[in-house]
Design a binder for these strands. Structure first.
Lengths: 243, 243
DNA sequence: CGGGGTCTTGACATACGTCAAACTCGGTGG
DNA sequence: CCACCGAGTTTGACGTATGTCAAGACCCCG
């Protein structure tokens, strides 16, 4: 993979995250400004995009790929506190650093702005500011949903909850309507799934096989997960089936 | 207690949360506008301020007192996903409802705006908008810190972590510098503490007595907690002692 | 065809939950 | 003023979900 910084391949008009990212409310005129200021950067799977407590130089949107937000304890324990998919925003304006690492879970492409440049944009564009508030509020809601999962749910419910979230986000992303029999890609290895759900690798693995044995999911290939019955999955996760 | 809506007792100029709340960056002129639009409302301990999934009519700041954000599973399991103290902002603009109840943990006073009114303010005041983004980002960071606690930490670390958070917020609030021997008030009963830390009442109680036996905390009275050695407490919580 | 990482499975250990009983304490009424 | 009540809390005994340790199985990539 050709990792590194380079000029964006296309215009914002044809950008795959055009109507969901931080820029989605911007008028064409404003978009033209962003276009001159943005740059793309790719990272390979496993690379650290942002180091916790280190100077934060860029703010970015995920164009494609997956990243995790990792918080670690000094003794090695680690919690994934966020999963960043296409159109998600990485970094915090007006803060020198972040409390968590940002790590590429797959090869990933970001649309980036230098931090001071983006901060200027925010100062002059209420549209951008409003949209960032909306995205941040969504992230906060998601974080609180996850607190419910971490604090209350059983191992089986946690794993089902993770899969439910994948399904919902996949649906949201592709704008397809949810349907029984749909398949999603598993973006994380077991270790990361464990660190995200607050379980051990072994327990997540066991729950995966249980869910398969019970017909809640099917595993056509290593990274594919087929869900024959969405309502069933949501029920296993103790989530409201608000299709 | 005289629960209900009424005109605010004083002007914003003398408000105890003047320089920390959503309005802290507003110029006097703008503050004068807010002053005509705000109203105070008090709730008694135990009252529900906002019902999950019900129409959200007001947005507000906590002037004094404590509230919890509660998410419940239909089988009775419950997770507290946020602790709202003085100057914290309650509610989400441009959303019809919230996913969690907001419940008064003590008698509490709010400074409120009708939702559409506040949304108008946000549209016309980038200052207010910017400050709301900042508060929301802070809440997000706090939620992610808590995910680390919920997902990784032991019962003792969780309880110590809760106390550490109380200490930090108390320091932040009173603008006193942190000092060994300071005491904080316990705002929540054991049941809520359990729901906040993802433990059972019995386990939280046991950890409280362990921490006392080990000299990490002292309990001069039912609601008071004295911390003879802050660094020790932070260490028990596995937090960085970033005084 | 071999080798290292990931995943799975099993046997066992333990931190924490559950159930049950006793204790504390602030409020209330006789 | 004191007895009593009930809610909240503490403590103990015991059960279990999940973690830990260890061995294999799988599988991608060279």
């Amino acid at each position: 993979m050709n990792t590194g910084t380079h000029r964006p391949p296309g215009t914002c008009g044809t950008c795959p995250i055009r109507h969901r990212a931080i820029c989605s409310e911007c008028a064409d005129e404003e978009l033209a400004v962003l276009e001159t200021l943005k740059s793309y950067r790719t990272f390979e799977k496993g690379e650290t995009i942002v180091w916790a407590e280190e100077p934060l130089t860029h703010l970015s949107s995920v164009v494609s790929g997956v990243a995790t937000l990792n918080r670690a304890l000094d003794d090695g324990r680690c919690q994934i506190v966020g999963l960043m998919l296409a159109s998600d925003f990485i970094g915090r304006p007006n803060r020198a650093s972040t409390a968590h690492d940002v790590v590429a879970a797959t090869d990933i492409t970001l649309c980036r702005f230098e931090k001071p440049v983006f901060e200027d944009l925010l100062r002059t564009s209420p549209t951008l500011l409003r949209r960032l508030l909306e995205k941040t509020s969504d992230d906060l809601d998601a974080a609180r949903d996850w607190m419910l999962l971490l604090g209350c749910k059983t191992a089986r419910e946690k794993v089902a909850g993770f899969l439910s979230m994948l399904v919902r986000r996949s649906v949201h992303e592709s704008k397809t309507s949810p349907s029984d029999g749909m398949t999603v890609m598993m973006p994380l290895p077991r270790k990361d799934l464990a660190n995200y759900t607050g379980l051990s690798v072994e327990t997540t693995s066991r729950q995966f096989t249980r869910l398969r044995e019970d017909g809640v999911i099917e595993l056509p290939s290593a990274r594919e997960i087929r869900v024959p019955n969405l309502a069933r999955l949501f029920r296993e996760a103790r989530e409201i089936d608000s299709n």
